[in-house]
């Protein structure tokens, strides 16, 4: 589904992503792990068009998407969340999700301006769909809250729902469990599993190793921008390089 081939991202002298190749199969949950500053988020940004790769290509569903703008990547069917939550703070929970359905809206600004019947009908249907989405994540009773007023864990959840409202084919989550308490994390895990079983492919960055091990079909490990290991949870867990990267060389067995 997503093929990254020899991707490099550089910031001045720093190579934040160093010759990373990655293949995500349709329907899988793929996790990227690695120590702080390994280049995980930068890789996400390279895929979603925020940081243009200096070298390499990224293909999505057989199409070259390297160097497209952010909105074009989103329009190809890649949804994402951000490590530092990026909600629309002045809007309500429901409005945030409504913004997520932007690409499904057919009414033009002219129809909006005159408030034509078809525009009003579409707005009603859109609202209905977003309310259903909110119900699925148990945020329905908070639909009129300001998004900035939600507790941290629910803000993360809302950002995921907003990304899902774009009807993506691939959903990229950057540390979705950060700041969540154990029960919220457990709930999130179930939710990710559920949407994945409904056919959504997922690329996940996560520091919570337990969560990654139990969720991911494939794990890619980055360190200093480079890919040092890839495989199932079992394979990665026993990889010598991974142990060194996380615990330092002295822990070599």
């Amino acid at each position: 589904m997503l093929y990254a081939k020899n991707v490099y991202v550089r910031f001045g002298g720093l190579t934040a992503v160093d010759n990373v190749s990655l293949h995500i199969a349709p329907g899988e949950i793929h996790a990227i792990i690695g120590p702080n500053g390994a280049g995980k988020s930068t890789f996400f940004n390279a895929v979603s068009g925020i940081n243009k790769p200096a070298e390499g290509t990224i293909e999505f569903m057989g199409e070259d998407i390297t160097g497209l703008s952010q909105y074009q990547v989103a329009q190809k069917g890649i949804g994402r969340t951000f490590q530092n939550i990026k909600l629309f703070p002045a809007m309500t929970v429901l409005e945030n999700v409504l913004c997520g359905s932007h690409m499904n809206v057919k009414s033009s600004w002219i129809q909006d301006m005159f408030g034509t019947p078809s525009q009003k009908k579409e707005e009603r249907e859109l609202r209905q769909k977003c309310l259903e989405l909110l119900e699925r994540v148990e945020l329905l009773d908070k639909k009129d809250y300001l998004s900035s007023g939600l507790p941290y864990g629910e803000q993360r959840k809302l950002e995921i729902v907003r990304a899902m409202a774009t009807s993506p084919k691939l959903l990229m989550l950057d540390e979705p469990a950060a700041g969540m308490n154990p029960s919220e994390t457990e709930e999130l895990k179930e939710f990710i599993r559920k949407i994945n079983s409904e056919g959504l492919t997922i690329l996940l960055i996560e520091h919570d190793v337990k969560m990654v091990m139990s969720l991911a079909d494939t794990i890619t490990v980055l360190d200093h921008g480079a890919k040092i290991a890839e495989g199932t949870a079992e394979e990665v867990r026993n990889d010598q390089k991974v142990i060194e990267a996380y615990l330092g060389k002295s822990y070599r067995r």
Binding site: S48, G49, I50, S69, Q70, Y71, A74, Q75, G79, R80, F82, K86, L87, F88, P89, A90, M91, C99, G100, H102, M103, R162, A163, A165, T166
Partner: peptide, 15 residues
């Protein structure tokens, strides 16, 4: 308003 609040987030929604 999405653009006013966070242009990156807006773009990530295909805007």
């Amino acid at each position: 308003m999405t653009i006013r609040d966070d242009a990156d987030a807006a773009a990530s929604l295909g805007i």
